[in-house]
C-alpha cells in the first residue's frame, strides 16, 4: 500500500496535515516554496491572545515532521496542478493519489493604500514590520524613556473595495490589540491609539484581551478609519480620521503609525484555479466544496484544502483544518 500524498505548502496547516497523515501510516511529501518550513509563523514574535512565543508552536511541529520522517522538498514551487499530479518550477512532475493545498495567504501590500505613505514615510510601518522589530527587541525611532504617541490602524487591506479586498481578515483586530499591549509594555510612557471600524473578537480569550488593553493598559480606541497620513516637518506622521462616536473629524500627530495589514489571497491561487473544479471567491481565496460540511474538500475528488488558502484563519483553526484534511485524505485513499 504505497499511497502518495502531496501537500502544497509547509506552513502550520501543511505541517499538521503531514503529521496527521504520517501518524496514520502515509508518507506524505511537503512541497514548500521557501527555504524553510513554518510559513508566516517564522516571522511572528508572540501569538495572541496568550503571548505565547511563535517558536513554541512552530518547534514541536518541526520536531514531529523530523521524527516522523516526512519528506520535505524546500525551495520548490508548484507551477501546475492536476488532479493526480503537480509540476514543479524545475520541470519535474510528481504524481500523487491525493493533493492537499495548504498554500496559505499573502500579506496585503500596504503600498497599495497610497494615502498612508508606506515605504515613503519612515515612520509608517506595517504590523508585519512590527513583529520583526519585536523579535529584534526595539522599534525604530522610539525611545523607551521619552513619551511617544503611536497610532495603530486596523483594516488596512481588509473590507476595502478600493484595493479589491472585500473580506474581513479576522485576525488583525486581535493582533492590533496584542501589538498595542506589547508596544505599551516596551514603551510605558507612550500613548497608543487604535483606529478601528469594528472590533471583531471572535476567538476564545480575545474579548478579554481587548478589555485588558483598554482598562489595564489604557490603550485608546477611536472608532474611525484613518483617511490619510502625511509627514510633518519633523518626520512625524499627521493622521486624520473621524471620531465616529462623537461625529467630528479628528486629527493628531504621531511618532509611529502601524498599519494592520490584512490577509490577501495567495498568489498561486489563480494558477490553481485553472484546474477544473477549483474556484475562487470574490477576494481570490479558493472556495471549498461546502463551507459548512466540506470546508477542506474541493470539487475534485483527489484535491483537499487546509488553512488560509480558503479564507483568513487563525493558527488554531489552520492546524485543526490540517487534521481534518488528513482525515478526509485517509478516507479518500482508502487507507
Amino acid at each position: 500500500m504505497n499511497k502518495e500524498v502531496i501537500i502544497i505548502g509547509g506552513g502550520v496547516a501543511g505541517m499538521q496535515c503531514a503529521i496527521s497523515l504520517a501518524e496514520m501510516g502515509v508518507k506524505p511529501t511537503i512541497i514548500e516554496k521557501s527555504d524553510k518550513l513554518g510559513g508566516k509563523l517564522n516571522d511572528w514574535y508572540k501569538l495572541f491572545p496568550t503571548f505565547t512565543s511563535a517558536s513554541e508552536v512552530l518547534n514541536p511541529l518541526k520536531d514531529m515532521i523530523n521524527e516522523l520522517g516526512v519528506d520535505v522538498k524546500l525551495s520548490s514551487e508548484v507551477t501546475k496542478l492536476e488532479p493526480k499530479s503537480v509540476t514543479l518550477a524545475d520541470g519535474t512532475t510528481m504524481s500523487a493519489d491525493a493533493i492537499v493545498i495548504c498554500s496559505g495567504f499573502e500579506v496585503f501590500d500596504a503600498r497599495l493604500k497610497e494615502e498612508y505613505g508606506y515605504k515613503i514615510y519612515d515612520n509608517v510601518i506595517t504590523s508585519v514590520d512590527l513583529e520583526r522589530m519585536f523579535c529584534e527587541g526595539s522599534v525604530q525611532n522610539l525611545d523607551k524613556n521619552s513619551p511617544s504617541r503611536i497610532a495603530i490602524l486596523h483594516c488596512v487591506g481588509s473590507r476595502d473595495e478600493k484595493v479589491c479586498q472585500t473580506h474581513c481578515s479576522r485576525v488583525c483586530c486581535v493582533a492590533g490589540v496584542k501589538q498595542a499591549i506589547e508596544l505599551k509594555e516596551l514603551y510605558p510612557k507612550s500613548e497608543i491609539f487604535n483606529f478601528y471600524m469594528d472590533i471583531r473578537m471572535f476567538g476564545c480569550g480575545y474579548e478579554e484581551l481587548y478589555k485588558e488593553a483598554q482598562i489595564k493598559h489604557n490603550i485608546h480606541f477611536v472608532r474611525g478609519r484613518i483617511s490619510e497620513a502625511a509627514q510633518t516637518i519633523d518626520s512625524k506622521i499627521q493622521i486624520k480620521s473621524e471620531d465616529t462616536l462623537i461625529g467630528r473629524p479628528l486629527k493628531m500627530t504621531v511618532d509611529l503609525l502601524v498599519l494592520m495589514v490584512g490577509m490577501s489571497a495567495g498568489k498561486s491561487n489563480n494558477s490553481f484555479a485553472t484546474t477544473d473544479g477549483i474556484n475562487l471567491n470574490t477576494s481570490g481565496f479558493i472556495s471549498p466544496k461546502n463551507i459548512f460540511t466540506e470546508c477542506v474538500s474541493s470539487d475534485v475528488d483527489s484535491i483537499f484544502y487546509a488553512g488560509t488558502v480558503t479564507a483568513p484563519k487563525n493558527i488554531g483553526e489552520s492546524i485543526t483544518e490540517g487534521v481534518a484534511a488528513a482525515h478526509k485524505v485517509a478516507k479518500f485513499i482508502k487507507l
Binding site: 490619510e228 502625511a230 509627514q231 510633518t232 516637518i233 499627521q238
Partner: peptide, 16 residues
C-alpha cells in the same frame, strides 16, 4: 517641473 528646473518640492501635510 520643479525637479527638472532645480527646485525642491515640499510634501507638507495638507498638500492634498
Amino acid at each position: 517641473m520643479v525637479d527638472s528646473w532645480g527646485g525642491d518640492i515640499i510634501d507638507y501635510p495638507e498638500r492634498r
